[in-house]
Design a protein around this nucleic acid. Sequence first.
RNA 1: GGACCCGUGGUGUAGCGGCCCAACAUGCCAGCCUGUCACGCUGGAGAUCGCCGGUUCGAAUCCGGUCGGGUCCGCCA
Length: 633
Amino acid sequence: MTLPARSTAGGRPSGTMSRMTNLATPYRTHTCGALRALDADSPARLAGWVHRRRDHGHLIFFDLRDRYGLTQVVVDADRAPDAHAAASRARSEFVLEVSGDVALRLPGMENARLATGDVELHATEVRILSEALTPPFYINDPDAPVDEALRLKYRYLDIRRQPMAERLLLRSALVRAIRDVHHEHGFVEIETPNLIKSTPEGARDFIVPSRLQPGTVYALPQSPQQLKQLLMVAGIDRYFQIARCFRDEDLRGDRQPEFTQLDLEMSFVLEDTVMDFVETMVIEVSRRAAPDRPILRVPFPRYTYEEALGRFGSDKPDIRFGLELVDLASALGAPASSGFRVFDDVLAAGGRVMAVRAPGMGSLSRSGVDELTELARRHGAKGLAHVSVDADGGLHSPIGKFLGEETLRSVADAAGAEPGDLVLIVADSFDTTTDVLGRLRTEIGARRGLADPDVLAYCWVHRFPMYKWDAEYVRWDATHNPFSGPVPEDMPLLTTASGDLSVRTPEDPAGRARAQQYDVALNGWELGGGSVRIHHREELERSFLLQGHSLEAMHDKFGGMLEAFDYGAPPHGGIALGVDRWAALLAYQTNIREVMAFPKTQSGGDLMLDAPSAPDQEQWDELGLRFVGVKRD
RNA sequence: GGACCCGUGGUGUAGCGGCCCAACAUGCCAGCCUGUCACGCUGGAGAUCGCCGGUUCGAAUCCGGUCGGGUCCGCCA
């Protein structure tokens, strides 16, 4: 039989593939997801992996799989004895090329669960292109649980499985949408080098020794921060990049040593210019990459840092549910004594007594409360007070005997407690109180299933403090990026009490300065952050001096950029968003490894490649290096 | 740097001091089967319970160490 070349082999569009893409090759006329009833009675050739085989003796069925789908193949011993012999030998994950005729399935034999389920391929020829060992885990069962270490070791098999393949396709769609939207808005995509000089973002650098200049090293970029600012000085005006970044810090489910940022920078902008564009871009990208996911609020809510902490106890709030924190000072009758010494002392010292409501958790057991108390202690609270409301509205609390019935009632009312609720109360400094209650709020939300998993709840948090006091080094530490600028009216605050930038104290005006710094949060995760930068050399030097850098050290580290600012730097600002996190959230995952093709383990290892590994002696010699062991504290 | 959890045929689990030279499901191998689609039926092979040491008359089971994986704190924007 002769097989005509096909131009519409694609079938259902998948990922970034357009409907018209020609996927036919010398090995196939169609993909395994393409055939439909209309193709009946035509010849076809498919290539793919044996997904599942059902051997009935004279008749063998198997599903052939590729990235595009599954197609059932039928091999009849009488009609095609050679094909039947090959199909008898074939096993799971063998790679086959199958030629035959597309046929409508017998009435009642259609499989509604397959896109190709109305038809099947009656094989005339089965060619084994590759044999396969029995796989170490189930490739044909998307729900089968598999140890993650095993998945990582055989990642190429894991990616054959549908869930992993789908997530990589989604990520591809995300990155494509990002590129498209930026190009539509006049952005230029520019690659920046990976072998650079340390750009202090605060994390530890990965180091690459130089062979041509023995005894020196490159650092891998923690982000393209300085380079993109230099591109603004260069007049590029609008830059973006899908940039690989490297940070040598301990790993988490949402942190890998190498990760991907959407990095962008814009010239001649104010804070609102950047935030407005980013918001437009994020909405457009979300709609293209995840059209089924509703966006909770447009425009995105904008909270100041103080407000986010006070209301949600987090600078990356999950606003898919309420349960906002409540300040109890007035309910406790402050400044008069509440009757409970712990609360009175905290309030007198300028701290806060605040609460969060746990709906429907009023009957939580003693050990359940202990669990929450432990969570609170782990994050710095000295204890956790609680009031439970029974079904009849009666209040029960270990601190009731101190507060008295009336105060207890006003506390419960202030917290908005209803019958069956539990009210959790923390008394400490503003930072600790909000942090602990924020974590409790998140825990309650998770336990009670309060957050709609389908919703994308983006929000902004901005006006972060420029600096936080670093008592150990007697300096003002940049809370975000050291190049961030202050909000214009706070520019005069970038100084010390004495005016001498080398004499720094916690009472300096600098401590009150707010940055033109903005973070985007998505469903309780920090998606990214950026700022409007300082673009004047003198102001940057001033900020660096407050951060405890000497002029010499500053020149050594940022000399290139400081010098560039002498040649006409435009006002500019930008942002960086975590592409891995974004993809993970769009894929309903909480672990970015699930959206990375080849991620590393928590100890930074690649189980498939067995990296890192010891270099050859020759490599050591070329670099003039020798391993002398690691100092242990 | 620290805390906690996990490690038993290929895979996922059960067993948690003697009843276990280890059970179940699935996978694998062989035979049978002409309409299956998680095909079915019959039979079979397959684990010294991550590794090392200790406690005990006796250890998959208890203890210590170690290796690997994970979650979290510190760290990290």
